[in-house]
Amino acid sequence: MNPSTEPVLADKGEDGVLVVTLNRPEARNAVNDALAAAAAAIMRDFDADPRLRVCVLTGAGGGFSAGLDLKAFLRGEVGEDPERGFAGITRVPPRKPVVAAVEGFALAGGFEIVLACDLVVASRDARMGLPEVRRGLVADGGGLLQMPRRLPANVAMEIALTGAEVLPGRLHELGLVNVVAEPGQALDQALILARAIARNAPLGVLASKDVLTASPSWDPDQAWERQHGLVSPVWKSDDAEEGARAFAEKRAPRFSGR
């Protein structure tokens, strides 16, 4: 198959960063079953490949994603992977960090994909939101579950119930968007962020994400114990020894992920 016709593209960089591109620009990168299956397979491989440390997720053709392909929906497609959910990511995201690079638009399910990512870089003129209620639908691809965790409750309610678009500048002020980039620069800025993460110790990065993701649901009386269970292997790792040795020798560490 010609790579340009594949619904999702994956570019494995030598710097440990995987760039994943939703590749249906003729359909505004809308999600059909083929795209969801391809994205899910790529995300599984990403988590399994020790050479890859961070994923940057973007869209082809100047836009991120318009969400579910409604033409495919009328044919009975739902754009979901049975295990990983909508677009192969919203129900079960990768354990490793994912950075969204948003140009143009991330609407409906496209915004739900963004909410499934750990960090967000968006061009200042990008349009984002959940317009499902305007189409007789409900944003059940993870957006209604993620927004209250990522945004103030009243703002999440506003976005969900009005279906109005929200600019990245406002989402940056509210803490969802990490970096507001100039138009056309979202991918470059996301790569800067991803490479800064990829330079760090893989085990430490994974454990940090695990704690940050899981701890909001922990019983406060058990939080320290549960954190210890996740992070104690890192302190005993080869990378912990290498980090200390590199600091003492005043050189850059060479982390192995062990």
Rank of each mutant, 00 (worst) to 15 (best):
V205I: 13
S215K: 12
Q227Y: 05
V179M: 05
I197V: 15
P202R: 03
V234E: 02
Q189V: 09
Q222S: 14
V234M: 09
H228P: 01
A240Q: 06
Q189T: 09
V180W: 00
K236Y: 13
E225I: 12
Q227M: 03
R195N: 03
S215V: 05
D210V: 03
A207W: 09
H228G: 05
R195K: 12
Q189E: 13
V180L: 01
L203I: 09
A198V: 03
V180Y: 00
S217K: 13
V234K: 05
V231C: 06
S215I: 02
I192Y: 04
D188Y: 08
A198W: 01
L203Y: 11
V234I: 10
A186W: 01
E182S: 10
A240E: 11
S208N: 13
E225L: 14
N178Q: 12
V211P: 01
L203D: 03
Q222L: 11
A214Y: 13
W224Y: 11
A201I: 06
D239V: 11
W218Q: 13
E225T: 15
I192T: 08
H228W: 08
G229R: 15
Q222E: 14
S215P: 02
V177N: 00
N200S: 12
K209A: 04
P202A: 10
R199D: 07
Q189D: 12
G204N: 06
N178V: 08
W218E: 12
P220V: 05
N178L: 06
A186Y: 01
S237R: 04
S237C: 09
L212G: 09
T213C: 11
A201W: 07
P216M: 13
Q227S: 10
A181C: 02
L191E: 06
Q222T: 09
S217V: 04
S232V: 14
R226S: 01
V179F: 08
P233I: 06
D188F: 10
A186V: 02
A186P: 01
V231M: 14
A194D: 01
D210E: 15
G204C: 08
L187M: 08
W218M: 10
A207G: 13
R199W: 07
T213G: 10
S217T: 12
P183L: 09
S237D: 06
S208Q: 06
D210S: 13
A196V: 15
L203M: 05
A190H: 02
A190Q: 02
L230Q: 04
S215L: 07
G184S: 15
I197K: 00
G204L: 12
V234N: 02
A186K: 00
R199A: 14
P202V: 08
A207M: 07
V180R: 00
N200M: 13
P202L: 03
E225G: 15
V177Q: 00
P216A: 13
G204R: 15
R226C: 01
W218F: 08
R195V: 01
A194W: 00
Q185T: 07
D219N: 05
A186S: 07
A196N: 04
S232I: 11
A196F: 13
E241Q: 06
P233Y: 12
R199Y: 11
L212E: 09
Q189F: 12
L187G: 00
A223C: 03
W218C: 03
Q189W: 15
E182L: 02
